[in-house]
């Protein structure tokens, strides 16, 4: 004879609802129930992406003070600023899942979370800024455009803006290279040299081959990831070859050739040993990147403490 009590859905029912949302290609939002593994996987992925944006400020940031024209300085400063903004959106997206920006930054500087290994290569000449825009941001776009349809709403929405800005970055990089290719012989040599150094690492940005990518299957099933690593890599190669031809540079792969039957480009073997070396911390700049990030946080910790103390004082008044 007791009054009816609200019936709590069982774990199975919640799971069924979640599965139905995914199956219908609808979005999961922060307050929705989600499996712990989905949540943890997303935090890992979004944090890694946010870290990549922030660490990714450094290679080009090294040229901000030295940019060879005021116009290029303005373009580069705006670009590096965008990357800080991307990091902020992405950390915010991770926070909707219960993560905390300061904690994620701790994990980054303590080596517990990774960032894209591409940023562990040095920028040796100004042409590197152009090639990073063209190839690195180009690869990032191929990876990230499908994420605008990620099953997790806040991430998908953040990615729309990120991708728009990334495509702007790609265009400015390509435009710099075009200008340099029309310039002096030294400038043309700089561009070719930069392409030679960045091409293979750019292909590695899509991650290990499909048969060696442990997290991929689950991510695809959950709609967090939409295409396989190899498929995206192929797309990037197909997109980049005609752009390289238009630019007048040679891509450093003797096996690169159009497959007449498929209309796609075949390319050579990627050096996955190098990839594993860089990802495990032994790239040319891993230590430098993390050291600088840690210093920005630690050397200025007193600033954050002051802002916190000031806010507390004034809230109390």
């Amino acid at each position: 004879m007791s009054a009816p009590t609200a019936v709590r859905p069982t774990e199975d029912e919640l799971q069924a609802q979640f599965d139905a949302t995914i199956a219908a290609d609808r979005r999961i939002e922060p307050r929705d129930w989600m499996p712990e593994k989905y949540r943890a996987g997303l935090v890992r992925q979004i944090a890694q992406h946010a870290h990549s944006e922030i660490i990714g400020m450094q290679p080009e940031g090294d040229w901000l003070l030295k940019a060879p024209s005021l116009r290029r300085k303005a373009v580069l400063l705006a670009k590096v600023q965008d990357e800080a903004g991307h990091g902020m959106y992405l950390y915010s997206a991770a926070e909707t899942l219960g993560a905390d920006r300061a904690d994620l930054t701790d994990k980054l500087v303590n080596g517990k979370q990774k960032y894209s290994s591409i940023f562990n290569y040095p920028t040796l000449t100004y042409a590197d800024c152009g090639v990073i825009g063209w190839l690195v941001d180009g690869a990032a776009i191929c990876n990230q455009v499908p994420l605008c349809r990620s099953s997790y709403g806040p991430y998908a929405r953040a990615m729309i803006r990120v991708c728009k800005e990334e495509s702007f970055h790609q265009r400015q990089g390509y435009e710099l290279l075009m200008t340099m290719m029309r310039g002096t012989p030294e400038q043309r040599a700089m561009v070719q040299d930069a392409v030679d150094r960045w091409w293979w690492p750019s292909l590695m940005m899509f991650g290990p081959p499909d048969d060696d990518s442990p997290n991929s299957a689950q991510s695809m099933a959950w709609g967090v990831k939409r295409h396989s690593n190899d498929e995206l890599r192929q797309r990037f190669v197909d997109m980049s070859v005609p752009q390289a031809q238009a630019l007048g540079v040679t891509l450093p792969d003797p096996e690169l050739a159009l497959d007449e039957t498929t209309g796609r480009y075949r390319f050579g073997q990627i050096d996955w040993t190098e990839f594993k070396q860089v990802i495990s911390g032994n790239g040319p700049c891993n230590e430098e990147r993390i050291t600088r990030r840690r210093a920005a946080r630690d050397d200025n910790a007193w600033v954050t403490e002051a802002a916190t103390a000031y806010a507390a004082k004034h809230a109390a008044r």
Partner: peptide, 18 residues
């Protein structure tokens, strides 16, 4: 740039610089 106390400050300083 890349050395500011907070990400918000990276954005703000770049704004002033630009």
């Amino acid at each position: 740039a890349t050395r500011a106390p907070e990400l918000e400050e990276e954005v703000a300083i770049a704004n002033c610089g630009l």
